[in-house]
Protein backbone atom coordinates (compact mmCIF):
# COMPACT_ATOMS: atom_id res chain seq x y z
CA UNK A 1 0.00 0.00 0.00
CA UNK A 2 2.63 2.45 1.05
CA UNK A 3 4.85 1.49 -1.82
CA UNK A 4 2.03 2.19 -4.24
CA UNK A 5 1.43 5.68 -2.89
CA UNK A 6 5.10 6.56 -3.12
CA UNK A 7 5.06 5.21 -6.64
CA UNK A 8 2.16 7.50 -7.47
CA UNK A 9 3.92 10.31 -5.68
CA UNK A 10 7.02 9.74 -7.73
CA UNK A 11 5.16 9.68 -10.99
CA UNK A 12 3.42 12.91 -10.07
CA UNK A 13 6.65 14.62 -9.03
CA UNK A 14 8.38 13.37 -12.13
CA UNK A 15 5.57 14.71 -14.32
CA UNK A 16 5.77 18.07 -12.60
CA UNK A 17 9.49 18.16 -13.18
CA UNK A 18 9.06 17.39 -16.85
CA UNK A 19 6.36 20.01 -17.26
CA UNK A 20 8.57 22.66 -15.66
CA UNK A 21 11.60 21.63 -17.71
CA UNK A 22 9.69 21.57 -20.97
CA UNK A 23 8.14 24.95 -20.22
CA UNK A 24 11.56 26.44 -19.53
CA UNK A 25 12.95 24.80 -22.65
CA UNK A 26 10.22 26.42 -24.74
CA UNK A 27 10.99 29.78 -23.15
CA UNK A 28 14.62 29.25 -24.17
CA UNK A 29 13.90 28.29 -27.74
CA UNK A 30 11.22 30.90 -28.40
CA UNK A 31 13.38 33.98 -29.02
CA UNK A 32 15.62 32.04 -31.38
CA UNK A 33 12.63 30.74 -33.22
CA UNK A 34 11.06 34.19 -33.53
CA UNK A 35 14.39 35.63 -34.64
CA UNK A 36 14.85 33.01 -37.34
CA UNK A 37 11.30 33.37 -38.55
CA UNK A 38 11.74 37.14 -38.72
CA UNK A 39 14.89 36.61 -40.77
CA UNK A 40 12.63 35.24 -43.49
CA UNK A 41 10.06 38.04 -43.19
CA UNK A 42 9.91 41.43 -44.83
CA UNK A 43 10.56 44.66 -42.98
CA UNK A 44 6.97 45.82 -43.25
CA UNK A 45 5.61 42.45 -42.21
CA UNK A 46 7.74 42.72 -39.10
CA UNK A 47 6.67 46.28 -38.40
CA UNK A 48 3.06 45.25 -38.59
CA UNK A 49 3.56 42.28 -36.31
CA UNK A 50 6.99 41.67 -34.84
CA UNK A 51 6.23 38.23 -33.56
CA UNK A 52 5.33 35.39 -35.81
CA UNK A 53 5.86 31.68 -35.43
CA UNK A 54 5.65 31.04 -39.14
CA UNK A 55 8.21 31.82 -41.82
CA UNK A 56 7.62 34.07 -44.80
CA UNK A 57 9.24 34.48 -48.19
CA UNK A 58 11.68 37.36 -47.85
CA UNK A 59 14.85 35.46 -47.00
CA UNK A 60 16.46 36.12 -50.38
CA UNK A 61 15.50 39.77 -50.48
CA UNK A 62 16.80 40.22 -46.94
CA UNK A 63 20.09 38.82 -48.14
CA UNK A 64 20.06 41.31 -51.00
CA UNK A 65 19.87 44.20 -48.54
CA UNK A 66 23.35 43.20 -47.36
CA UNK A 67 24.82 43.77 -50.79
CA UNK A 68 24.39 47.52 -50.72
CA UNK A 69 25.47 47.85 -47.10
CA UNK A 70 28.71 47.47 -45.26
CA UNK A 71 27.59 44.00 -44.32
CA UNK A 72 29.98 41.25 -45.24
CA UNK A 73 29.26 38.18 -43.12
CA UNK A 74 32.53 36.46 -43.99
CA UNK A 75 34.67 39.41 -42.93
CA UNK A 76 32.53 39.83 -39.84
CA UNK A 77 32.89 36.18 -38.90
CA UNK A 78 36.62 36.33 -39.35
CA UNK A 79 37.05 39.45 -37.23
CA UNK A 80 34.70 38.29 -34.51
CA UNK A 81 36.44 34.95 -34.47
CA UNK A 82 39.85 36.55 -34.04
CA UNK A 83 38.62 38.70 -31.18
CA UNK A 84 36.35 36.24 -29.40
CA UNK A 85 38.69 33.33 -30.07
CA UNK A 86 41.78 35.27 -29.00
CA UNK A 87 40.13 36.62 -25.87
CA UNK A 88 38.79 33.20 -24.94
CA UNK A 89 42.06 31.35 -25.48
CA UNK A 90 44.11 33.94 -23.62
CA UNK A 91 41.55 34.24 -20.85
CA UNK A 92 41.34 30.49 -20.34
CA UNK A 93 45.06 29.86 -20.52
CA UNK A 94 46.14 32.61 -18.18
CA UNK A 95 43.28 32.00 -15.77
CA UNK A 96 44.38 28.39 -15.52
CA UNK A 97 47.95 29.52 -15.02
CA UNK A 98 47.00 31.98 -12.29
CA UNK A 99 44.74 29.42 -10.65
CA UNK A 100 47.54 26.88 -10.75
CA UNK A 101 49.87 29.37 -9.12
CA UNK A 102 47.29 29.81 -6.38
CA UNK A 103 46.76 26.11 -5.78
CA UNK A 104 50.03 24.34 -6.42
CA UNK A 105 52.61 26.62 -4.89
CA UNK A 106 53.30 27.81 -1.41
CA UNK A 107 54.33 31.40 -1.62
CA UNK A 108 54.11 34.21 0.82
CA UNK A 109 51.71 36.44 -1.08
CA UNK A 110 49.45 33.59 -2.11
CA UNK A 111 46.58 34.37 0.23
CA UNK A 112 46.82 38.16 -0.24
CA UNK A 113 46.91 37.60 -3.98
CA UNK A 114 43.76 35.51 -3.83
CA UNK A 115 42.06 38.18 -1.74
CA UNK A 116 43.26 40.70 -4.28
CA UNK A 117 41.68 38.72 -7.13
CA UNK A 118 38.42 38.57 -5.25
CA UNK A 119 38.65 42.33 -4.85
CA UNK A 120 39.29 42.79 -8.54
CA UNK A 121 36.21 40.69 -9.17
CA UNK A 122 34.17 43.42 -7.51
CA UNK A 123 35.26 46.17 -9.85
CA UNK A 124 32.38 47.09 -12.11
CA UNK A 125 33.24 47.31 -15.79
CA UNK A 126 31.92 50.87 -16.11
CA UNK A 127 34.41 52.12 -13.57
CA UNK A 128 37.26 51.48 -15.96
CA UNK A 129 35.26 52.08 -19.13
CA UNK A 130 35.76 55.82 -19.58
CA UNK A 131 39.44 55.70 -18.68
CA UNK A 132 40.09 52.59 -20.74
CA UNK A 133 38.68 54.09 -23.88
CA UNK A 134 40.63 57.32 -23.59
CA UNK A 135 43.80 55.41 -22.73
CA UNK A 136 43.48 53.27 -25.86
CA UNK A 137 43.06 56.36 -27.99
CA UNK A 138 46.10 57.93 -26.47
CA UNK A 139 48.38 54.99 -27.21
CA UNK A 140 46.93 54.64 -30.71
CA UNK A 141 45.34 51.26 -30.25
CA UNK A 142 42.23 52.08 -32.20
CA UNK A 143 41.45 49.80 -35.08
CA UNK A 144 43.46 47.17 -33.31
CA UNK A 145 42.18 43.92 -31.90
CA UNK A 146 44.61 44.06 -29.00
CA UNK A 147 42.52 46.22 -26.63
CA UNK A 148 39.66 43.79 -27.15
CA UNK A 149 41.74 40.65 -26.62
CA UNK A 150 44.51 41.38 -24.11
CA UNK A 151 42.37 42.52 -21.15
CA UNK A 152 40.95 38.98 -21.07
CA UNK A 153 44.22 37.85 -19.50
CA UNK A 154 43.05 39.26 -16.18
CA UNK A 155 39.69 37.55 -15.72
CA UNK A 156 39.12 37.26 -11.96
CA UNK A 157 35.86 35.29 -12.11
CA UNK A 158 37.47 32.74 -14.37
CA UNK A 159 40.49 32.45 -12.08
CA UNK A 160 38.18 31.80 -9.17
CA UNK A 161 36.31 29.09 -11.06
CA UNK A 162 39.52 27.45 -12.20
CA UNK A 163 40.94 27.59 -8.72
CA UNK A 164 37.90 25.87 -7.30
CA UNK A 165 38.14 23.21 -9.96
CA UNK A 166 41.85 22.64 -9.38
CA UNK A 167 41.33 22.33 -5.65
CA UNK A 168 39.19 19.31 -6.33
CA UNK A 169 40.86 17.87 -9.38
CA UNK A 170 44.57 18.41 -8.94
CA UNK A 171 46.50 15.76 -7.17
CA UNK A 172 49.81 17.13 -5.97
CA UNK A 173 51.22 13.63 -6.27
CA UNK A 174 51.03 13.73 -10.04
CA UNK A 175 52.87 17.03 -10.05
CA UNK A 176 55.51 15.73 -7.71
CA UNK A 177 56.09 12.56 -9.64
CA UNK A 178 56.54 14.63 -12.80
CA UNK A 179 59.08 16.74 -10.95
CA UNK A 180 60.96 13.63 -9.96
CA UNK A 181 61.00 12.69 -13.64
CA UNK A 182 62.76 15.98 -14.24
CA UNK A 183 59.97 17.91 -15.90
CA UNK A 184 60.13 21.66 -15.46
CA UNK A 185 57.25 23.66 -14.05
CA UNK A 186 56.04 25.04 -17.38
CA UNK A 187 56.05 21.61 -18.92
CA UNK A 188 54.10 20.23 -16.00
CA UNK A 189 51.53 22.95 -16.29
CA UNK A 190 51.12 22.68 -20.04
CA UNK A 191 51.24 18.93 -20.38
CA UNK A 192 49.85 17.58 -17.16
CA UNK A 193 47.71 20.21 -15.49
CA UNK A 194 45.97 21.73 -18.52
CA UNK A 195 44.56 18.39 -19.73
CA UNK A 196 43.12 17.79 -16.27
CA UNK A 197 41.33 21.12 -16.50
CA UNK A 198 39.58 20.42 -19.78
CA UNK A 199 36.00 20.27 -18.43
CA UNK A 200 36.35 23.52 -16.49
CA UNK A 201 38.02 25.14 -19.47
CA UNK A 202 35.19 24.12 -21.76
CA UNK A 203 32.53 25.54 -19.46
CA UNK A 204 34.33 28.81 -18.99
CA UNK A 205 35.19 28.95 -22.68
CA UNK A 206 31.51 28.98 -23.50
CA UNK A 207 30.82 31.84 -21.09
CA UNK A 208 33.84 33.81 -22.29
CA UNK A 209 33.29 33.24 -25.99
CA UNK A 210 29.62 34.21 -25.84
CA UNK A 211 30.42 37.33 -23.86
CA UNK A 212 33.18 38.43 -26.19
CA UNK A 213 31.29 37.57 -29.37
CA UNK A 214 28.24 39.60 -28.37
CA UNK A 215 30.23 42.54 -27.06
CA UNK A 216 29.17 45.62 -28.98
CA UNK A 217 29.94 48.90 -27.31
CA UNK A 218 33.71 48.83 -26.92
CA UNK A 219 34.41 47.30 -30.36
CA UNK A 220 32.07 49.81 -31.95
CA UNK A 221 33.98 52.72 -30.45
CA UNK A 222 37.45 51.31 -31.02
CA UNK A 223 37.09 49.73 -34.45
CA UNK A 224 36.25 52.34 -37.04
CA UNK A 225 37.81 50.65 -40.05
CA UNK A 226 35.23 48.82 -42.11
CA UNK A 227 37.58 45.89 -42.71
CA UNK A 228 37.81 45.32 -38.97
CA UNK A 229 34.12 45.36 -38.04
CA UNK A 230 32.78 42.50 -35.98
CA UNK A 231 29.46 40.79 -36.65
CA UNK A 232 27.52 42.73 -34.00
CA UNK A 233 28.87 46.02 -35.35
CA UNK A 234 27.72 45.10 -38.83
CA UNK A 235 24.28 44.20 -37.54
CA UNK A 236 24.03 47.47 -35.67
CA UNK A 237 24.94 49.30 -38.87
CA UNK A 238 21.98 47.71 -40.59
CA UNK A 239 19.87 49.56 -38.11
CA UNK A 240 21.25 52.80 -39.50
CA UNK A 241 18.94 55.64 -38.77
CA UNK A 242 15.30 55.79 -37.91
CA UNK A 243 14.13 56.66 -41.41
CA UNK A 244 14.58 53.27 -42.96
CA UNK A 245 15.33 50.36 -40.76
CA UNK A 246 15.60 47.06 -42.59
CA UNK A 247 14.19 44.84 -39.90
CA UNK A 248 14.16 41.68 -41.99
CA UNK A 249 17.84 42.08 -42.80
CA UNK A 250 18.62 42.90 -39.17
CA UNK A 251 17.04 39.69 -37.99
CA UNK A 252 18.88 37.81 -40.70
CA UNK A 253 22.11 39.41 -39.54
CA UNK A 254 21.31 38.53 -35.94
CA UNK A 255 20.60 34.96 -36.95
CA UNK A 256 23.91 34.76 -38.80
CA UNK A 257 25.65 36.22 -35.75
CA UNK A 258 24.23 33.56 -33.51
CA UNK A 259 25.08 30.61 -35.76
CA UNK A 260 28.79 30.40 -34.89
CA UNK A 261 27.87 30.70 -31.23
CA UNK A 262 25.60 27.71 -31.64
CA UNK A 263 28.40 25.72 -33.21
CA UNK A 264 30.84 26.57 -30.43
CA UNK A 265 28.20 26.03 -27.80
CA UNK A 266 27.04 22.67 -29.00
CA UNK A 267 30.57 21.49 -29.67
CA UNK A 268 31.44 22.20 -26.04
CA UNK A 269 28.08 21.31 -24.57
CA UNK A 270 29.05 17.77 -23.72
CA UNK A 271 30.98 19.22 -20.81
CA UNK A 272 27.91 21.07 -19.66
CA UNK A 273 25.89 17.87 -19.92
CA UNK A 274 28.49 15.85 -18.08
CA UNK A 275 29.06 18.64 -15.61
CA UNK A 276 32.23 19.95 -14.07
CA UNK A 277 33.18 19.04 -10.54
CA UNK A 278 34.30 22.04 -8.53
CA UNK A 279 36.24 21.46 -5.35
CA UNK A 280 34.23 23.17 -2.67
CA UNK A 281 36.97 23.36 -0.06
CA UNK A 282 34.81 21.11 2.08
CA UNK A 283 36.77 17.92 1.87
Amino acid sequence: MRRESTLVGRTVSKTIKYIVCIFLAILSIMPFWIMMMNATRGTYEIQQNSISLLPSTYLISNFKVFEGKAFNPLVGFKNSLIIAGGATVLGIYFSCLTAYALVAYQWRLRQPFFTFIMAVLMIPAQVSGIGFYQFMYRIGWTNSYLPLILPAIAAPAMVFFMRQYLLGALSIDIVNSARIDGANEFYIFNRIVLPIMKPAMATQAIFAFVGSWNNLFMPMILLTDKAKYTMPIMVSLLRGDIYKTEYGAIYLGLTLTVLPLFIVYFALSKYIIAGVALGSMKE
Binding site: A70, Y133, Y137, L216, F217, M220, I221, T224, D225, K226, I233, S236, L237, R239, G240, D241
Partner: peptide
Protein backbone atom coordinates in the same frame (compact mmCIF):
# COMPACT_ATOMS: atom_id res chain seq x y z
CA UNK B 1 38.03 56.27 -46.98
CA UNK B 2 34.63 55.97 -45.39
CA UNK B 3 34.01 55.25 -41.75
CA UNK B 4 30.48 54.30 -40.89
CA UNK B 5 29.48 53.94 -37.27
CA UNK B 6 25.85 53.43 -36.40
CA UNK B 7 24.17 55.80 -34.00
CA UNK B 8 22.95 52.71 -32.15
CA UNK B 9 23.72 52.95 -28.44
CA UNK B 10 25.24 56.35 -29.00
CA UNK B 11 28.49 54.98 -30.40
CA UNK B 12 28.91 57.37 -33.31
CA UNK B 13 29.40 60.54 -31.31
CA UNK B 14 32.15 59.42 -28.90
CA UNK B 15 34.13 57.98 -31.80
CA UNK B 16 33.66 61.07 -33.94
CA UNK B 17 34.50 63.38 -31.05
CA UNK B 18 37.66 61.49 -30.36
CA UNK B 19 38.67 61.48 -34.04
Amino acid sequence: KTTIIATTDGAYQPALDQA
